[in-house]
Nucleic acid binder design. Structure first.
Lengths: 187, 187
DNA sequence: TATAATTTTCAGAAATTACTGAAACTTCAA
DNA sequence: TTGAAGTTTCAGTAATTTCTGAAAATTATA
C-alpha cells in the first residue's frame, strides 16, 4: 500500500508516541495504519508499507490482539488473514483505558491491599502505611471509575466527555441534588 | 536509611511499575521512597538506600522535579539538599495527569489539528481524515477534562472520584440540572 | 582567594528491548 | 500424502535506554 506523505507522517508520529502509550514503535505504526485504512490489511501489506520484517508484524499483531484493538477477518476463497482496527473510536478508547488499568494499576492495587493487611511493625511503617492507604484509596476509586466507564453506552460516554467544562457545575449541583434526595428519604 | 522488608518490596514494586508510568525503574524507586518517608531525604541517602550511583540519583531527581513531584528543602547550617514528595495525594494525582497529558496527548493533538487543516487529496485521505477527526475530537475532550480536573479543589476531586459508582448519577444530575436551567431560561 | 562540601554532567559500560530472517509449524486443497 | 500458501517462533543482532563513576562545576565558608 502506498501512503500520501501526510498519512505517512501521521503513521510515523503514532509510532513515536506508541512508546508513551505502552507499546513499541512498530506496533504503534501498525495500529495507526490499520485505523486510517478503509480496507482490512494483510500482514504482508503491513510489513511492506512500513518496511519492517514479516516476523515483527506477526509479533506486533499478537500484541494488538492482546489489547483487543484489532480483529482478524477472512475473504471467501482466500486463506490470508485480514486485519482491521476494531469498531468505533469509543471502543478503542474503552480498550485502551481497560488495558492500561490492568497493566498500570491492578498490580499495584493488589500489592497495596496485601501490605495494608499487615499491622505496622515500626514507627516508620506506621507513617508509610498512612500514605499507602491514601494511594490505595485513590487507585481504588480510579478502578471503580474505569469499570463504570466500561458499562457506558457510546452515547453516554460521549455525553460524559463533552460535559467536561461542567464538572464543576455538576459537583456544585450534586450538593443540592443529594441534599434533596436525603430530605425526601428523611421525610 | 534502613527499610523493613515490606517497605523494600513496595519500593521495588514501584520501581518495576515506574516504566509503565513513564519513568524508569530507579526514578520510580526514588519516588516511592520519598513518598513513604516521614522525613525529607538527601541525595546520598537515596543512593545508599537504593544501592544506585550518586550520578543516577542526581538525574532521577531532575526528572522528578520536571514532573513537579518533589520539592527541595534545606536545614539551617546544612548545605545539603533535602528532598520530599510534594503535598497531598491529590496533588500527586493532578501532577501525574497533567504531565502525562502533556507527553501523551498534546503532541498528537497538535499534529492532528494540522492534518485536519489540509483538504483531503485522495479517496484514501478522505477516509483517513474522518477517523482522524474522531480521534481529534476524543483527545480534545480528554484534554478539556484534565484541564477541568486541575481546577477542582481536593475536596471536589475527592467527591468526584468517590462518585464512581454513579457515573450514571452524574449524567442524571446533569440532565436535571441542565433541564432546570433550560426551564428557567424559557420561563 | 583557597578549599571543602556538595551537586551535576557526561562518556562509556551494562542492561534491556526491539527487530530480523530463516526455520518450524499449520492449514488447506488436490 | 504432498506441497503450496500462509503464519509463528526464536536465536542472534541491532538499537535504545539506563546506569556508573570520575571529572567538572557550583556554592558556601574561612
Amino acid at each position: 500500500m502506498n501512503l500520501t506523505p501526510n498519512l505517512t507522517s501521521f503513521v510515523m508520529h503514532f509510532g513515536e508516541m506508541g512508546s508513551r502509550w505502552g507499546f513499541n514503535r512498530t506496533v504503534g505504526q501498525m495500529y495507526a495504519l490499520l485505523v486510517i485504512s478503509a480496507e482490512p490489511l494483510t500482514a504482508n501489506e503491513l510489513a511492506e508499507t512500513l518496511n519492517i520484517s514479516r516476523g515483527n508484524v506477526s509479533m506486533g499483531l499478537k500484541e494488538l490482539q492482546s489489547w483487543q484493538l484489532v480483529q482478524v477477518s477472512h475473504l471467501p476463497g482466500d486463506r490470508k488473514d485480514y486485519f482491521r482496527a476494531i469498531g468505533s473510536i469509543w471502543d478503542m478508547a474503552k480498550r485502551v483505558i481497560e488495558e492500561r488499568r490492568k497493566r498500570e494499576i491492578d498490580p499495584t492495587l493488589s500489592l497495596l491491599r496485601d501490605m495494608l493487611l499487615d499491622k505496622p511493625a515500626s514507627a516508620q511503617e506506621k507513617h508509610a502505611q498512612q500514605r499507602l492507604q491514601e494511594i490505595h484509596d485513590l487507585l481504588e476509586s480510579v478502578t471503580n471509575w474505569t469499570n463504570e466507564l466500561q458499562r457506558l453506552s457510546p452515547d453516554n460516554l460521549s455525553t460524559l466527555l463533552k460535559l467536561s467544562s461542567g464538572v464543576g457545575k455538576v459537583l456544585d449541583m450534586k450538593d443540592k441534588f443529594i441534599g434533596k434526595e436525603e430530605r425526601k428519604k428523611n421525610r
